[in-house]
Simulated scan of single mutants.
Amino acid sequence: MDSRCALCGGPPHPGAPLALCLTHLLEAHDWVAGEFGMTDLLPSPCVFCGSRLGVRYPSGWLCAVCEWRVGEVPPDDPAASRVDVVYYLRFRDRIKIGTTANPAQRFAALPHDEVLAFERGDRTLEQRRHAEFAHLRIPGTEWFETDESLLAHVASLRAPTPDPWSLLARWRSESAARA
């Protein structure tokens, strides 16, 4: 590393990854925080999804999970944030493909070991998935045998966000914001 600050010629801050003095490192930090936000704990849980993780910008806080702006009141109308999803539940060695707008309530009535994924969609998409994996379907049910094609589909749904619940929270927040 250079022995002088690249901007002012002063001594670089010890251990800094760039040849910058403390003043210029702090200026760079402030710029990054203003441009990209700083991840931190929210002052209080998100009123929309309950998360404590937030991103602080000079203009205010956003929930890091659902991107709800801190201080904004969620809609009174539950329909404003309704999101229909196709869900994938694992129970032992089988996977259920179903649809709901209220996963927590629906899952309370279903035996399952793990929520694998959510996919934004309604009965039409659910029926397409049932047809796509019909060769795995256990007759008379919405449960499917597990094989590589179904596991690959679930993995593709989980790739951008491994936690299905945080993805659902984001979709609900976006829906409410549009309403």
Score class of each variant (00 low, 15 high):
133 F>V: 06
134 A>L: 11
134 A>F: 10
134 A>C: 03
135 H>G: 14
135 H>L: 12
135 H>M: 08
135 H>F: 13
135 H>A: 15
135 H>T: 14
136 L>Q: 12
136 L>E: 11
136 L>K: 12
136 L>C: 12
136 L>S: 09
137 R>N: 15
137 R>P: 01
138 I>V: 15
138 I>F: 05
138 I>W: 07
138 I>Q: 11
138 I>E: 14
138 I>Y: 07
138 I>T: 13
138 I>P: 08
138 I>R: 07
139 P>M: 05
139 P>S: 13
140 G>D: 02
140 G>C: 05
141 T>G: 01
141 T>L: 04
141 T>H: 03
141 T>N: 00
141 T>V: 04
142 E>R: 09
142 E>H: 11
142 E>Q: 13
142 E>K: 03
143 W>H: 01
144 F>T: 02
144 F>N: 04
144 F>E: 06
145 E>M: 10
146 T>G: 01
146 T>E: 14
147 D>R: 14
148 E>A: 15
149 S>F: 03
149 S>A: 15
150 L>K: 07
150 L>F: 10
150 L>D: 05
150 L>Y: 10
150 L>C: 11
150 L>M: 09
150 L>H: 08
151 L>V: 12
151 L>I: 10
151 L>H: 09
151 L>C: 11
152 A>I: 09
152 A>C: 05
152 A>E: 14
153 H>C: 06
153 H>P: 01
153 H>M: 04
153 H>Y: 15
153 H>G: 03
154 V>H: 06
154 V>S: 11
154 V>R: 09
154 V>W: 04
155 A>F: 02
155 A>H: 03
155 A>M: 03
155 A>N: 10
156 S>G: 14
156 S>M: 08
156 S>D: 13
156 S>R: 15
157 L>K: 07
157 L>N: 03
157 L>Q: 12
157 L>Y: 02
158 R>F: 01
159 A>W: 04
159 A>F: 06
160 P>W: 08
161 T>D: 13
161 T>F: 06
162 P>H: 02
162 P>M: 01
162 P>F: 00
162 P>R: 08
162 P>K: 03
163 D>S: 09
163 D>W: 01
164 P>K: 06
164 P>T: 06
164 P>S: 09
165 W>D: 08
165 W>M: 13
166 S>C: 10
166 S>E: 15
167 L>P: 00
167 L>M: 12
167 L>E: 13
167 L>G: 10
167 L>S: 13
167 L>D: 06
168 L>E: 00
168 L>M: 02
168 L>I: 00
168 L>V: 00
168 L>A: 01
169 A>M: 08
169 A>N: 08
169 A>D: 11
170 R>E: 09
